[in-house]
Nucleic acid binder design. Structure first.
Lengths: 223, 223
DNA sequence: TGCCCGCGATTCCTCAGACAAGTAGAGGGG
DNA sequence: CCCCTCTACTTGTCTGAGGAATCGCGGGCA
């Protein structure tokens, strides 16, 4: 058994090790790293693996390699990237933040929704319905529905926040549904329908409660 | 024919080409890319080169490869600049997102706070108290207090979200307080104290309500 | 003395092939 | 109908080779 559910390929491990050494100051800013052959031998990995690690850090803007010259340090740290934070964070923590955003958005949506918003919500709800044989499609439809709720809140910041969360939550949900499909498709759909109806009749407390209840159950399932 | 393209290494060119196709929707979010051998042959490059391009995009968080399964799209774009989003957004919208985060954090803090958290909260509350200083200091002390609440929730994502909001909200608050000082310093302090006490006695609903009430009043004042 | 040029050593870049490790779906047995 | 095994496919890693770009050294020249 392997302890970590999230196993890192060797190349990713090498990338982490290099970043750590760079942070520690082993190779100062602007300095050159040892040659690939030397560094690969020192780390005990193949050249291809080391090159992939270098590419990964180059993608993050930490390293820059020039043919014939060498590999140079261009930054001592990766900018505090939102995506990286979400990727590193626990799924439960991400979901708690999502609960905060969606419950608030549901209440705001109940207050501000236009007739067009309600139509869009009903359409998204219907799109969720066909018990997709493909897990990915089902998750995508679910995400589209939840996004429609946020859009109905008419708050640009909340929409942006949700969009930032989508990739992380999506992978977690796909993983979970593959391993353990929903117990009751019916109950799940019913919970979403309740949320739409609460928003439609402008019942903010009920909308927030419906959203919170549904997502809390999801968090329990994913945790 | 090769002259202009050779400015970047081939792997970097391939990475750009892949990102462009992903943006164009050739491979939707969460979808799998063709196998490395197939894709390399189609692009007319070696498999190693393609792998380095994939690694570069993986470093940016766009792709994720799983051994035995394939390479998957995890984001359609490189992460947005959050600062820019918050700067051009409406203050009211930012505050609504902050309400969502802080109210949830208050409830979580009530459930999870340690004795050390409570001590830090009381200290931050005391630091807020001394009135009659320059506006900037008062706002900073207030921000520090609210941050302490989030920290007590023990959720890294919420802390990061709050930190992203701080600069935007700070300037807005300084602006407002200069134009129109608080009507009742006493009442403001009382509201914060109620929040701390609710968290201290593990009363999640009361903590959430106190946070929400206080921030909603602030939103009315700023709007 | 000072400058320019050629050349070789070093380094990264790209490709091809091979095998190991892991996944997911098909098919058989209960 | 469910569970298990087995197989085809995919990514992970290593090795070896040759091409291309860069840098530094030394010789030639004014």
């Amino acid at each position: 058994m392997v302890a970590q559910l999230q196993r890192h390929p060797l190349a990713a491990q090498v990338a982490d090790a290099l970043l750590e050494r760079i942070r520690a100051g082993e190779w100062p800013l602007g300095h050159r790293l040892p040659a690939e052959t030397v560094l690969a031998a020192r780390l005990g990995v193949g050249r291809s693996t080391l090159r992939e690690a270098i590419r990964e850090l180059a993608g993050k803007g930490v390293l820059d390699s020039r043919q014939g010259a060498g590999v140079f340090v261009t930054a001592l740290d990766v900018p505090d990237d939102w995506d990286a934070v979400l990727r590193r964070a626990d799924v439960a923590a991400v979901l708690e933040a999502r609960i905060a955003i969606e419950a608030e958005a549901a209440a705001l949506a109940a207050a501000r929704r236009t007739p067009a918003d309600v139509r869009a919500l009903r359409r998204a709800l219907a799109g969720r319905a066909p018990a997709g044989r493909c897990v990915d499609d089902h998750v995508d439809a679910d995400m589209a529905f939840h996004r429609a709720v946020i859009v109905a809140a008419h708050n640009e910041v909340l929409v942006e926040l949700f969009d930032a969360f989508v990739p992380r939550v999506r992978t977690a949900m796909v993983h979970m549904l593959r391993a353990r499909p929903l117990a009751s498709e019916e109950a799940d759909h019913e919970a979403h329908a309740r949320l739409v109806e609460a928003i439609a009749r402008r019942d903010a407390p009920a909308a927030a409660a419906a959203s919170r209840t549904h997502l809390t159950a999801l968090k329990e399932a994913l945790g």
